[in-house]
Nucleic acid binder design. Sequence first.
DNA 1: CTAAAATTAGAACGAACGTTCGAAGAACCG
DNA 2: CGGTTCTTCGAACGTTCGTTCTAATTTTAG
Lengths: 249, 249
Amino acid sequence: MPVSVTSRALDTRFDRRLAEILDYATEIFAEKGYEGASMRDLSRLSGISLAGLYYYFESKEKLLYFIQQHTFTTIIERLRERLAATTDPEARLRIFVRNHVDYSVAKQKAMKVLAHEDDVLKNGYGTELAATKREYYRICVGLVEGLVKADGLKSVGSNAAATGGINTRTAVMGLFGMMNWLYTWYNPRVDPDAEVLAREISDIFLRGIRAGKMASKPSIDSLQREPVGRPEKKPDSSKETTSSGKRRK
Amino acid sequence: MPVSVTSRALDTRFDRRLAEILDYATEIFAEKGYEGASMRDLSRLSGISLAGLYYYFESKEKLLYFIQQHTFTTIIERLRERLAATTDPEARLRIFVRNHVDYSVAKQKAMKVLAHEDDVLKNGYGTELAATKREYYRICVGLVEGLVKADGLKSVGSNAAATGGINTRTAVMGLFGMMNWLYTWYNPRVDPDAEVLAREISDIFLRGIRAGKMASKPSIDSLQREPVGRPEKKPDSSKETTSSGKRRK
DNA sequence: CTAAAATTAGAACGAACGTTCGAAGAACCG
DNA sequence: CGGTTCTTCGAACGTTCGTTCTAATTTTAG
């Protein structure tokens, strides 16, 4: 019977062993992808027999769930601790970025698994993870809105706010993009450390969403709704492709 | 024998049929991932028998290669056409973003496959795609450097340039992050169209890399080298994980 | 030391995988 | 019309997949 999911309980032999296996699993999932990695790969890497693995978890799916859930909750946990330190909007946003970048740099593989195998888990664990993810997203939106409010003015409407002429959702997703893309390119040997990196990303974002003398139009947009998706038949008009092949022997 | 890979040659029946299959393949690869999707899935979706598929291409791997190579070269092709229109640095950067966003919105699934199955292909096709990708990346770096130069000053050093205090590589990767993350969240029914989206992303990026009155330190950094990676043993000190499991019946 | 509990692993399960083969059907050209 | 070429497919190939069964081994506690 499952007990907890958070950090505690590294005490028992069982938990320590499971944690070790999860690290190995994170490694191959990051390397070969969830579907591409086999339990036999994990067996080989961990040195535990194929059947032996199943003493610690009940399925490959649950293995992925453990990894993702732990990664997510740890990030949020640490964020909450750090955010308690200040109420200044800009400082809080910088803390958010710093926290995310810190974890991405320290646990690059776990972040890759989190970002890469995002929509693998289905109805059971999938919805729970989606909720955790939404929670994290909402924290970020809250920080950005706090920032917009603190800067005074420039906010247009209530849910379709404009940040320097930029939709809040777009801005937040842009920030997540910069941070979550890290795993594809970050190389500790040539790239700045987490502190510098977080500052650079924060700078781009903060300057980016604040109004300045723009080259194009200042900000006349305010017509963007929130995500409430109504069901509908999607036409999806995409066609066109390549040619070339083998053409029969 | 393979002939071309670019846009032409939708003439023959063979090419038209292959193009159709590639569209179906893009769809399931986007939905289930390359490893997760089976040839039987593709057979079912396309209505072509399992064996019949192999008349048009020689392996699942080649299928992925076709999709990725075509997507990449099309984007670059269109970009080159559009860039010919102007020499103004800012306008050119905006064209780059617009072109990328346009394609991402119009061919969301293809972009997902491109971004998601980035490191699946190995030595043969893999290196060719990597070269194409690097070419695209270099175009973007060129545009950003042109922008920095046009803004005058602020450039520090030659390869470790500072754009408003931000490493060029970081800035470019941040931009790619914003654009390539699109496929994870963009919803045509609630989000701005490509034009608006491209403008918002460009605005964030352009304001972001230009110096302004900052809240924190202005820009004293200039100590970041370029990617020249020397081979070395990576220690990779990451440990720590979750607990909880089933604990034997 | 002994007995119970926790932990490991060899071997095998059915299912699904990518791919191939040979023959049958459809289209084309004289 | 007949003959050649292009296109399609059912059936099967060998392999690998996630998972389970059962028994043996190791650890723990009295």
